[in-house]
């Protein structure tokens, strides 16, 4: 089973739903070690993505990913906007020219997204950021790249959830939480949590077909 423009549009609508559903949870996580706006910012961004989809119809998976990227960059703000925007932008570039994505293409797009986030935010694994989620997700996706899109995303989502949990004991070394130093330990990183939620949502959309 491959991923077409239509299935990707449906999956992106699913992302918006998940973000709205977890808005309060993300706000609460961010209140503990940040400035309590992560859920609100992400929800504003994905609500804007839904509006953008009402007025324009992407003609390829790459165009869909680029629309998400530019909307999130403009609407989310903070560090999450440029970081998530970069992730979607690099995924759009990696999938340019393909009308359907197979498992290998999805794994390659995830790898491009991770590389973009690392280049933009200069975070490494262990810094208590979304990189702690994306890095293991990409590794799992790459190992499953020969399989279906659903299998690749399922592997990525499971690794992502473990990656998010792994941020709990960490001391933040990047972003706003790093201002707290040792006091950031013992909390789930909100950016790690939202990234894992997004990957699980993509996996659920792919698996439901």
């Amino acid at each position: 089973m491959t991923c077409t423009t239509e299935t990707l549009v449906a999956a992106v609508r699913g992302l918006a739903g998940v973000v709205a559903e977890h808005r309060t949870e993300l706000i609460d996580l961010d209140r503990a070690i940040g400035d309590a706006d992560h859920g609100e910012n992400l929800n504003r961004g994905f609500t804007a993505v839904l509006s953008a989809l009402d007025s324009s119809t992407p003609d390829s998976p790459s165009a869909m990913l680029k629309l998400v990227a530019t909307t999130l960059i403009s609407k989310v703000g903070g560090a999450s906007g440029p970081l998530l925007g970069t992730a979607f932008l690099r995924a759009a570039t990696a999938t340019a020219g393909q009308s359907e994505l197979d498992g290998a293409a999805v794994a390659a797009a995830l790898k491009a997204a991770l590389d973009g986030v690392v280049a933009r935010g200069k975070a490494e694994v262990g810094d208590k950021t979304m990189v702690d989620v994306l890095a293991p997700a990409v590794q799992a996706a790459t190992e499953a790249a020969g399989e279906s899109v659903a299998a690749v995303l399922a592997a990525a989502a499971s690794a992502a959830e473990q990656g998010a949990e792994s941020t709990i004991p960490l001391v933040a070394r990047k972003g706003r939480a790093s201002y707290l130093g040792e006091r950031s330990a013992g909390h789930l990183d909100p950016g790690a949590r939202s990234t894992a939620l997004l990957l699980r949502s993509l996996a659920n959309s792919a698996g439901a077909r």
């Binding site: 960059i73 703000g77 903070g78 560090a79 906007g81 440029p82 932008l89 933009r120």
Partner: peptide
């Protein structure tokens, strides 16, 4: 500060 650099880099790209 911080995200201003990322936004500037994205604008340049």
């Amino acid at each position: 500060l911080g995200s201003a650099q990322m936004i500037a880099e994205l604008a340049v790209e």
